[in-house]
Simulated assay, not measured.
Amino acid sequence: MLSSVNALPQPEERGLSGRVVTTSCTPGSYHTTTTTCAVCPAGSSCDGTSGKSQLCNPGSYQPNKNSTSCIVTAAGHYTNQKGATQVIACSTGSYQPSKNSTSCIGTPAGYYTNQVGSAKAIACSPGYYQPNKNSTSCTATTPGFYTNSSGSVAAVGCSPGYFTNVTAALKATPCSPGSYQSYSNQTFCYGAPKGRWQSMYGQAVVCATCCGWSAPLVNNNVNPVNCTGSTPNAWPGSGDGCISTATTCVHAKTCVQAANGACPAGNFTG
């Protein structure tokens, strides 16, 4: 039942019947008849002057009675119907940066929200990614992959010559001198075996030995050895030790990689 509120007294206007007519209600109330007013209900506003009750528009609300205005929804919240008495918080996986809103925005790929009522989406940190919209979390990269920027929508696979062996990697690690990796998305590097060597970081190939040079280590040969003295010889491409027997090749003066990582005499991908 409507609560009755006294109307504000107004200058008398006598009609044909001689009856006094009131024209205004107190703020927070509205006319039920020309002479009586009622308390403004929740979800509405009543200015008193017009004598009318106005439902709150979508994007606003009013939980209290006897109100003269509606409340604009705060960021992270919304209302989508007229006459709302309560504000609705954005659910996880969505957000709303603006006031006076009628809906929430789903998080884009590369972002997430994990709390209700979020005013902004959170970018996935480096080492994480999210390919889907409306997400509540991000996914850590697996070994062999990485992300090095915020808001990534996909993991980046390691290029040949690089690797990662941890989850949530921020960058790929180059293979150390003495090792190499010929394939993408890998978690380790191969060591340069006997007769092969690699003197640079981040290389995809292993180099063969030059004529008169040797790579004698079982594994992880960084630089070839120049054969001299009583054992000046070694076969190119298979030199795992210096020998005294003469070879048909001409002893190379140097056996070094080029600045771009190219091998001096042949290369092998593993």
Rank of each mutant, 00 (worst) to 15 (best):
A109C: 15
Y129W: 06
G157W: 02
I243S: 15
C249H: 03
T136C: 08
P143F: 10
T228M: 07
R14T: 14
G191L: 15
G161L: 02
T85M: 07
G127N: 05
G212H: 10
N267A: 02
G195R: 14
N226F: 08
N233G: 12
C46P: 06
N80D: 14
T245Y: 11
V166C: 02
P126V: 04
A252Q: 07
Q115K: 07
C211L: 08
N132A: 09
S98D: 14
C124Y: 04
G270L: 01
N132H: 15
G270P: 00
A119N: 05
A89C: 05
Q115H: 09
Y95G: 00
C90W: 00
H77E: 09
G15N: 04
S244H: 06
Y180D: 01
S184Q: 08
Y111P: 13
K194F: 12
T228R: 10
T68P: 09
A246H: 10
G76D: 00
A172N: 07
T142S: 15
K120Y: 03
S103M: 09
Q10W: 13
S53D: 06
C70F: 11
W197L: 13
P236C: 07
T167P: 03
A234C: 09
T49K: 07
T92I: 05
L55K: 02
N226P: 04
V256K: 11
A123R: 03
A155H: 03
G241L: 11
K99I: 14
G117V: 01
T228F: 09
N219E: 09
G48Y: 02
V156S: 01
S91C: 02
C211E: 07
N148M: 05
N185Q: 08
A74S: 10
T35I: 09
C242G: 12
P193G: 12
A140I: 00
S230F: 03
